[in-house]
Nucleic acid binder design. Structure first.
Lengths: 262, 262
DNA sequence: AAATACGGTTCCACTATATGAAACTAAAAT
DNA sequence: ATTTTAGTTTCATATAGTGGAACCGTATTT
């Protein structure tokens, strides 16, 4: 089983993720094959989730898919939990000014999650790339965020990296990365020097609140064909400006009515 | 209590939705105020969800928000459960050809959920947004889908409508709506004659699979200032074409490998 | 046509889990 | 110093989940 599923909800969520993993409508038997829950248990779990509309069941084909309630919740999540709704107008502006791909990412567990994105050319519909996860140790946003993590958290995150060598440039060991993080703190922004995907480069700046806590990161990404680190460098003041504005707005927003008693 | 929450997962999900409802980071006590779960129960539920990363807890402020795991699942849901990924290229084409706002919606419970959207070349401000839900009885997509529901399901859906009179044109009672549904079946598409928002009109066509089951609906929306029902009417063949193509592709896609045994 | 295998669903005795009133702790307000 | 508020833990009890096995309908084989 993929993780320690304490409690019933844990199991239910594991099943949900199991269904999600297939990325297509899936039959009961297929699920049973990939799960070690006993048949009856799995069955009941699926039923519960279906009744709760977290899954939807197509009686024609006898398949389960992720339910719409999930999409609704996600809408709320996107609006609430992440920086996305605040950052949105700023990302638009940044995208317009630079003409390059803009990413908004947050750190979760030990991975980077892309919360929003602006494509270089076409305006993206909502969930297109948002929700994807990526490694922290070899992406601009990941490194930018890690650079400002308190030591205990950093150690925790570092311990969980896969250190897979995606390209020649990948910093595939802790020492090298720690050195890099120092450099990032010194200059205030991170680079991705084709460390994750060949030909893809970026600059990233962390978004931090007043107390210095890392909230997320913004990056501008391009390719070695179209641009260079030097060129991207010229965007840094603009990005930093944007991250600061976002950080400031976050402060107001997170406590809209601390004292409200109505 | 918002709904019959059978089982522990039901309760957990109710809590999740409770948090979602606030649309902002929320304190324990606030949640306690809006829920009738006893303190300890609510507390444990929150803890479980947090441990499962469906919620995230900010120790600085003592607030809960929807967690990233939700966003990840939603990403998968959007890609799998809905018509969205299939419909996407068709929506692009439709949007390009018509220059008007295009909506893709599905019916859930008794409500319409907007699964994807393309803005018009000059976008109008309006309610809908990807992930948002809306009423079924007074939207083009809602009526288009209801028109082709089997009677038992239809009755069920109708019974759950709020019948709020948003505008003068709103069909705010079952009889009127049923008559309208007959008309829709006769002509094969539905109109929204400013029934939900003043000045907003649309034509909608259902997406149905071979067996006639309603999968969703496509609509083209505009305003009375810019267009008219007559003008929108001219889009109908194009929309119908698109829905047919989407429906066809759905068939293939839902069983990518019925016989695969690897 | 009868026999069999398969995918899915239901049963039910058993027990792990969730429950919630109340007690407790820390911090803030008076 | 005392009270209130907000959040956390305890624990006996009850409830909800468990899973082996039996069951059922349909498709496949003989």
């Amino acid at each position: 089983m993929q993780s320690k599923a304490d409690g019933t909800v844990g199991k239910a969520l594991a099943v949900l993720e199991l269904v999600a993993g297939f990325e297509r409508p899936v039959r009961f038997s297929e699920l049973q094959g990939t799960s070690d829950y006993p048949k009856a248990t799995l069955y009941r779990l699926l039923q519960t989730l279906t009744k709760q509309r977290m899954l939807s069941y197509d009686p024609d084909s006898g398949t389960y898919t992720l339910g719409v309630r999930l999409v609704c919740l996600a809408h709320a999540a996107w609006k609430t939990s992440s920086l996305a709704p605040i950052a949105r107008p700023y990302m638009d502006k940044l995208s317009e000014k630079t003409g390059e791909t803009v990413h908004l990412a947050q750190l979760d567990h030990a991975q980077v999650i892309y919360v929003d994105k602006r494509n270089a050319s076409q305006p993206l519909p909502m969930y297109s790339e948002a929700g994807k996860v990526g490694p922290a140790y070899c992406t601009g946003v990941g490194k930018a965020m890690m650079a400002y993590l308190p030591e205990d958290q950093l150690a925790d995150v570092l311990a969980q990296q896969s250190w897979h060598r995606f390209t020649d440039g990948t910093l595939a060991e802790e020492d090298a990365l720690r050195a890099e993080l120092v450099a990032i703190r010194e200059r205030g922004h991170a680079y991705d020097r084709e460390e994750h995907e060949p030909g893809i480069i970026c600059v990233a700046v962390p978004i931090r609140n007043d107390s210095g806590r890392v909230l997320g990161a913004l990056s501008i990404t391009s390719s070695t064909l179209r641009s260079s680190l030097d060129k991207l460098d010229s965007f840094v003041p603009l990005i930093r400006d944007t991250t600061n504005q976002i950080a400031r707005e976050t402060q107001n927003w997170r406590f809209p009515e601390t004292k409200a008693t109505a």
